[in-house]
Amino acid sequence: MTTKFLVALTLLAGAVQAQTVTGKAFGTYVNAPGVTSQSPIATLPSTGGMATGQADAFGVAGAVDAQALNAVTTGVADNKKSGAQSTSELEQVSAAGGAITADVVTAVATAYFGQFTGGSDGEGSGFANLVVNGQTITTEVAPNTQVDLPGVGYAILNEQLQTGNGLTSYGITVNMIHVVLQDALGLTTGEIIIGSASSSVAR
């Protein structure tokens, strides 16, 4: 009861305070031995608005190949209502030497404040025709599903990382494919991120 009262009080106070939004999205990021590369990034201006980052194709040999990369982020900070929504999409994706493939990878990250509510979610994120280690995945991939990639390392699929304190700030980062590269000893040597979208709001 007391907690609910405090939450309501804080949100009411926030309704007259300045709010901030952030948004970011990109198709691919590769940080592997000898190579660091990233596709165009969409970064939401601090004043809100819209940004895009697009490429017809992107490839790093042995790490990732993808087509039709499209990253978009939009948002506005307002006293009454604020929100940021970011999407990243790629098609014909192949990662980690073909250990993971998908027809379409879609990341959606949403963060919002209404007058009396706030939150963040990765709803709308998903894969089309996802294949991992030769196995076709026909069901929805639960957030933060980890799979081993023999000879490569492991991958976290539909990685969802919540940010913010859940009271005056909310946020989420969605990485649809996050490959952690490991050597023979299991030591991390790099990473590949495919389909990344982040959004946050704060007051």
Partner: peptide, 11 residues
């Protein structure tokens, strides 16, 4: 109807 994301109206 949106299956992901958000639409916001602002002043």
């Amino acid at each position: 109807i949106l299956s992901g994301g958000n639409i916001q109206q602002h002043r």
